[in-house]
Write a protein that binds this DNA or RNA. Structure first.
Lengths: 344, 344
DNA sequence: TATTTTTATGAAATCGGTTGCTTAATGTTT
DNA sequence: AAACATTAAGCAACCGATTTCATAAAAATA
């Protein structure tokens, strides 16, 4: 238990007032260079460490940004976080991260903790369970910038950062149709999540554009994890006639599907062409490489954080009401798993 | 800008002193139940929110735990973080996370930020660049619990949580030898990191045990990412005679190697048996499934956090000096990529 | 009933920077 | 040289919860 050095100690040592020390440390212009130098020398000599609590208490700022994600251990989410961390770090901000584990209750609890921790801003990707966003009202009321990413709250009036899931799914489906697919199965996650709802829309639009009928029996709901492939494929194998295209809303799951399709003796892409989503590492490593939608997680995280930071300095502008939705570019990356022409 | 409600406002409303309000909120026994009830009613009615800065300023606790990892967007690390977050959340602690991006300088900067943010404890996995751990001395001096995980500082005297990398690599290599491999290539990362240094040891020990000679030309250094496979395989193809076993220190890289070996027309496991490391999702999805070492990231994170928490309440015990190393169990998971016998 | 113990509460100092206001010293203008 | 502007620095209040010490009221004991 060493005694803490305060600005008062520094002040006494240098022979100035605590005010001047405080000003010097914050590079206030009204401190003479010579005095400043003396103060910084003393700071170094005495091993002074600023007490952020005292500072926070006055300035009402923590320099902490809260982030709530559904899961930390997801390829996509951790890329987003990496991007956020970089941007935050560059701006001298800390990241407080928590996960909702897809539970509404836990998300509420986390939001509450964040609020009580007085984060300066909050970035959220919603849990699949989340039914309303009332738990973020305290932030809005207090004018704390709140921004959603990926899994956004459409109605909320808050800014959301997304990719155009409709367009991406449309492109993916169109690509399969171009490859000659007539019966395309679409595997997606919880439809309550905007992400999956939009992709389903995109899938339907593509059918419409090509004057193909939407067949509900070709839609398979799944939790899209790496084990889901077995069950999905067993469902697919029961379809009669078999589909010739498969659009899975997640690469890990697509990989799992491919694996189980191969076990059933089905050739990819000749019998069934497959498109995934995310451009995860795995899409480049399985055989055949998976055609997928590039989902720029790192960029999304960086952009979300930078956007939030922009709003930190002007509290009057409050809840990011000027821009309401930022859409990132995402392209279809065509690989072997879907290229029927070439393999014919 | 709504005015903040403080305990003074509550006190005035209820007709007691701020002292009593503070006591009531902290469930101090010396507050009459009736008074307490009145206070909590007022708290609810007035929408009071505790100001943690003021509390922190007095109690000198933040309830924040810092975590420094090399990269956020790594399968293993994000699992660790998920485990940590869970344990922290249960204990009412927040996680402040930053990444060193494998840079010594950035790690130092992050450690410094953490220190200035007055985290109550710190969990670190070292960057590959890190040459010394002097930047953690301020924590030790102040008695802030510091704990390393996975990439630990051997000499430091700080507790480290690891798996037995030597034993794991020994088992993996022995397994390949049992499958009849005579020339086993080992692909590893930066040898300065304890993790890879230990695995190399394990590999050598296995050779020794089986009276096989260590051949330095069979050791390949790599950054072990998903793109590294191509280069590694081009090196391997130049070996004469070709190896018959391959032990890669990371599943994503192993998958990449398998892919490129297959492109060269080499059969797995018949021509070359492959063992990976980590038990990443990918090891279960590529063809053939990869034999790998289970690396329990989630458990490691949970354990590390729980261990740290144990030391938070007894500041006298200081720097976790009683236990010096905690080793987690990790098993070899045998899959098709290495099973020569069965495929013969 | 008088005295001691227990219980419930409050006054005031404290934690350590920050900042509005004031003042002294120096520099500039006419 | 007088009047004004600028620069550098300090005083003291403040942020809001916590905590030590003191005290009034109630309960227990003699």
């Amino acid at each position: 238990m060493e005694k803490e050095i305060t600005i008062y100690d520094i002040a006494k040592d240098v022979g100035v007032s605590p005010t001047t020390v405080s000003r010097a440390l914050n590079h206030h212009p009204a401190v003479h260079e010579k005095t400043k130098k003396k103060i910084f020398d003393a700071v170094l000599k005495m091993g002074y460490q600023s007490n952020i609590f005292a500072a926070n208490l006055r300035t009402k700022r923590t320099n902490n940004i809260g982030v709530i994600v559904p899961r930390l251990n997801s390829n996509f989410q951790s890329s987003v976080l990496a991007g956020m961390e970089k941007a935050a770090n560059e701006a001298g901000l800390n990241l407080i991260i928590s996960q909702s584990l897809e539970s509404f209750e836990k998300e509420k609890a986390n939001a509450n903790t964040m609020f009580n921790s007085r984060v300066d801003g909050l970035l959220v990707s919603l849990a699949s369970d989340t039914e309303n966003i009332d738990h973020y009202k305290p932030f809005l009321r207090k004018g704390i910038p709140l921004l959603f990413f990926d899994r956004i709250a459409e109605q909320s009036g808050c800014t959301g950062i997304v990719i155009d899931n409709i367009q991406a799914a449309l492109n993916a489906t169109n690509h399969l149709i171009e490859q000659g697919c007539k019966r395309i199965v679409h595997v997606l996650g919880n439809i309550k999540i905007n992400v999956y709802a939009d992709r389903l829309k995109g899938y339907k639009y593509a059918l419409l554009e090509n004057e193909m009928l939407f067949d509900p029996s070709l839609i398979i709901l799944s939790d899209l994890n790496e084990e889901a492939g077995e069950e999905i494929i067993s469902k697919i194998m029961k379809l009669n006639p078999l589909p010739d295209g498969l659009f899975v809303s997640n690469d890990a799951c697509a990989a799992s599907c491919i694996r189980h399709l191969k076990l059933e003796g089905i050739r990819i892409p000749e019998d069934i062409a497959v498109v995934g989503f995310n451009n995860d590492v795995i899409s480049r490593l399985v055989e055949p490489n998976i055609t997928t939608v590039n989902y720029p997680g790192y960029e999304m995280g960086e952009l979300a954080m930078k956007n939030l930071i922009k709003h930190l300095d002007k509290p009057n502008e409050g809840m990011l009401e000027n821009t309401n939705k930022i859409t990132l570019r995402s392209d279809l990356i065509i690989r072997k798993s879907s290229k029927k022409e070439i393999s014919l």
